[in-house]
Design a protein around this nucleic acid. Structure first.
Lengths: 182, 182
DNA sequence: ACTTGCATGTAAGTCGTTACATGATTGT
DNA sequence: ACAATCATGTAACGACTTACATGCAAGT
């Protein structure tokens, strides 16, 4: 997945490993974020496969490696993007805890869910801010931006917000149920 | 996570590695399912930590290893269950594809989402059947079952269904939007 | 002077996966 | 007889993570 994201980000323009990390944080970050220590070996592998190349930019004493996607990398990426979307399990540790929550005292369980809900609300607020910033940037941009690109990326952000809103509503309902039961 | 699920399942009763796998499939299976080849080394580690022990059951030529949770294992598990629930990112490859879907032709994109929706609907139907079976089993059971246990496990199943219903509704709405846009 | 940000990389470890390899038991 | 299911295990690999290690550049 990581390698596909790297290729996708390089399709938008050449980047250093540092830029890739920063870009990831601000774009796919809310659902997929790699550590810098894992981007490095991923780039190494992409170089070996011939999916990316790099050129060196000299800035005084510092040498910056700027990576670019190759024709083969582009082909690989487009093939992946065209493949069917596979339905994955919601591998969420929160569900494992809920499943075994009969081994937790009720008061503690309620407390845990309330803390969890608090975290969810923070994320929702953050994402709303992110969306506002994105929309502003698009409005203020004089460049002719790729419309389809903006749309798909905003849709993903929208999914993120809706997902956390779903979580919020679900756990709030569950909390009410637990309280009424006892 | 895997080790915690194994401990949790062993709290319900002693099991062989095979039984653990089967139990996992039918209980946490829809959100977390380990391969048999990964349960084996996990048990090895739990043995080394002293979190489980095993006894051998001889059935003719076959020797069955029955694992049981220890006092230390129980302590470890309860401590984990009591810890705050951490909010995880929805690490879903489908989102990565959506994010970069501007590189896919619109017709193919619509087709992919339709196929994805089809898979989601199958899962929802399967889970509804699973829920019915669970409810029947509870009704027909003469045993005094642990009420709290049943409740938390059904709640998890309910979360699963609601999650897939959310996915279904979200992608259906997105599909309508894409169609109206063009 | 000092902190923050830019910049690249390695090492060790975690947590899993798929595929392989083997064999006993039970039901049809 | 044979298929399905019970039963245990290894080997090779994948896809990361955290922590470490280093050093330049820019702003306050």
């Amino acid at each position: 997945m990581q390698d596909k994201i790297i290729l996708g980000l390089l399709l938008d323009g050449d980047k250093s490993s540092y830029d890739i990390k920063k870009n990831m944080e601000m774009s796919t970050g809310f659902f997929y974020n790699s550590s810098q220590g894992s981007i490095q070996p991923a780039l190494k592998k992409l170089l070996q496969n011939g999916h990316v190349t790099f050129s060196e930019e000299h800035q005084g004493a510092r040498v910056k490696k700027v990576y670019a996607i190759t024709k083969e990398g582009e082909k690989e990426f487009i093939e992946w993007a065209d493949e069917a979307i596979s339905l994955e399990k919601p591998r969420d540790p929160a569900l494992v805890k809920m499943f075994f929550s009969n081994y937790v005292e009720l008061d503690r369980k309620l407390e845990m869910i309330e803390e969890y809900l608090h975290e969810i609300k923070i994320v929702i607020a953050t994402m709303k801010t992110m969306e506002q910033i994105s929309l502003e940037q698009i409005k203020n941009s004089k460049q002719a931006l790729d419309n389809e690109k903006i749309k798909s990326r905003l849709a993903t952000l929208q999914f993120g917000m809706d997902y956390y809103i779903f979580l919020n509503e679900w756990y709030e309902k569950y909390l009410r149920q637990l309280k009424n039961d006892n």
